[in-house]
Amino acid sequence: MGRFILQRAGIMLLTALCLTFIVFALTNLYPNLEKLAKTQANSRMTDTEVVSWLENRGYLQPLPVKYGQWLGVLPGYVIEGSDGRTRARCAPDGIPAEDAPRFCGVLQGDWGTSTVFREDVSEIVSKRLGLTGWLMLAVMCVMVPGALILGVLSGMREGSRTDRTLSTVSIASTATPEYVSGVLFIAVFASSAVGLKWFKGTATSAMDDITFANFTLPVITIALYGMGYIARMTRASMTEVMTAQYIRTARLKGVSFRDIVLKHALRNALIAPFTVIMLQFPWLLNGVVIVETLFNYKGFGWTLVQAASNNDIELLLGVSVVSVIVVLVTQLISDIGYVVLNPRIRIS
């Protein structure tokens, strides 16, 4: 087991390195850097001015060198600029370049500075992650019980009319992407045209104060898309368990149907959905990006969109590191959980 986890951790590290390098390479392409220079300094710079601006700030070093500096395995640049100022990667404005530490990268705990928000990346990411954490928590509280109930109800009597109705409901929910259901919900429950106005169409106020009115729609929107998939997996696993020999034995013994479902079938039927729920996290991340944009909730997904659309290199790298870790850790947990929960599987 220990070796298994170690091996997986090694693959995780390798994947994270490859991914960040790809993001780094794509964001450091010259047209992207040019756009960055023009948004940061002056949108009417000439080409030579752009080059000298970039050169002074170390953007035109070779790609592996820059990546090493970001990672913290190579010493940060110290460049005497064409305008006479000496800039160092590790020296923020106001500190002379000589006093700065030599290394400043992710390994040293320095995630860099966002060019859009003009704040430390680690601060932005942790603040936004906190906001998204509340959203995810609420989504999980709605989605998981809802999906399990839906799946168990439809799976306990396969082929019944309840099963057919609920299966269609779950198919419909997997077929509704967040930007469609969100738009429909806002139109019905929040717009002045229909006039119900039960909830608010934006979740901006939920960043300070979560209320039922401003948080329901975003949560339901994300939960609905993931719910159908988990419900279908639960149904499949439940129908499989319900045809097992020991369920038949229990029935022949005269155990009531309710006790069969609750005491005999349910525990075994929930092993497969556990892994599915864990693997849903990366998809939730997608939903979070869409929903936060739609409802203007300035969390992690909103930050991703801002960073990506403004080519904010270091923020984007921070965001992608976090999301990659979320993806890989949930994969790891789902693998381990599957082994721990299912007594029939042992890793030798």
Partner: peptide
């Protein structure tokens, strides 16, 4: 994340 990939691949600069 799919959306990050799209942002990295589909912008006019890329």
């Amino acid at each position: 994340p799919v959306i990050l990939l799209f942002y990295l691949l589909v912008t006019p600069e890329i």
